[in-house]
Design a binder for these strands. Structure first.
Length: 273
DNA sequence: AGGGAAACCCGAACGC
DNA sequence: TGCGTTCGGGTTTCCC
């Protein structure tokens, strides 16, 4: 599903110079069609279609779960949420069975935003920071040291799981990766964030980075016909392994709800202190 | 400030 | 076969 790893892969593939992927770089938009109005979070769908015309793709990047397509004048920010996908090709018709937005480039290239669940959103803004500035640090930011991470955790008094999912605290983690990172660090999802030792904070940061690295390497996970990505699901340690033995200690993996989110953990080696 | 819950969406997978 | 119900993902919003 499109948590950060798949977003990272897609952002990378949009600038690919070889293989079956074409690069978007340098292309200009000659036509935009909004098929599902609410996909465009801002400005209005009509303004969007007009304002994006003739803008050229200058760069493609990523910040948290947002893909940032920097254009001549504006930035096109894309959030895939769960079921969104970007398809690049040369069909004249909308690509994908659930295309919500199509951008056509001057040479016939099409970028289609396919999204069966209609949860994904795009923004066309002059300043990308107007949207992105709300995000917490990147998990791989070199200034995010174990010490700083420990300070961040100590400054809050929240259950670890919801805090890791809070994009204003740390950018990029979704439900799968939060569970996997907590398992890696042997921390209970309900553990209050301000009770972690420096060692535990370091371990959590390492776990987050390892889990994301693996997810990116696997091109994300495919947990449903509609949440398609790579094959990271074959390497889950806890996520969706309810009742199965913990791969570290053999105890049965438990599933609980935390902040309405399905949460998987090992009751033996992720004890709350 | 933190936590719980509802809303937004859809189609697969279920129960009857 | 055909209905109705449940589920889950990320985020925002509202309410205690």
């Amino acid at each position: 599903m499109p948590e950060l790893p798949e977003v990272e892969s897609i952002a990378r593939s949009l600038t690919s110079e070889r293989g079956d992927n074409e690069s978007l770089l340098g292309h200009s938009i000659s036509r935009a069609r909004v098929a599902w109005k609410r996909t465009v979070a801002s400005p209005s769908a009509q303004t969007f279609q007009r304002r994006i015309l003739n803008q050229q793709v200058k760069a493609v990047g990523r910040r948290g779960k947002f893909i940032n397509i920097r254009l001549s004048k504006d930035s096109l920010l894309i959030h895939l949420r769960m079921s969104g996908d970007l398809l690049l090709g040369r069909s004249e018709k909308p690509m994908g069975n659930h295309s919500r937005l199509q951008l056509y480039f001057e040479d016939g290239l099409q970028l289609s935003f396919n999204d069966p669940r209609k949860f994904g959103r795009v923004w066309l803004v002059e300043d990308a920071e107007s949207v992105l500035s709300q995000l917490g640090p990147e998990p791989f930011d070199t200034t995010l040291t174990p010490a700083r991470f420990h300070d961040m955790l100590s400054a809050r008094k929240r259950q670890l799981k919801p805090l890791l999912l809070d994009q204003t605290f740390l950018a990029g983690l979704g439900n799968i990766y939060a569970d996997e990172a907590l398992w890696a660090a042997q921390l209970h999802p309900l553990q209050p964030s301000n009770q972690l030792t420096r060692k535990q904070a370091r371990s959590l940061l390492t776990g987050i980075q390892e889990v994301l690295t693996e997810g990116i390497r696997r091109n994300g996970a495919s947990i449903d016909w509609v949440y398609r990505g790579g094959d990271f699901q074959n390497y889950f340690k806890v996520y969706q392994r309810t009742g199965e033995p913990c791969l570290r200690c053999g105890a049965k993996i438990r599933r609980i709800l935390v902040g309405q989110r399905s949460t998987h953990f090992c009751p033996r080696c992720q004890e709350k202190s």
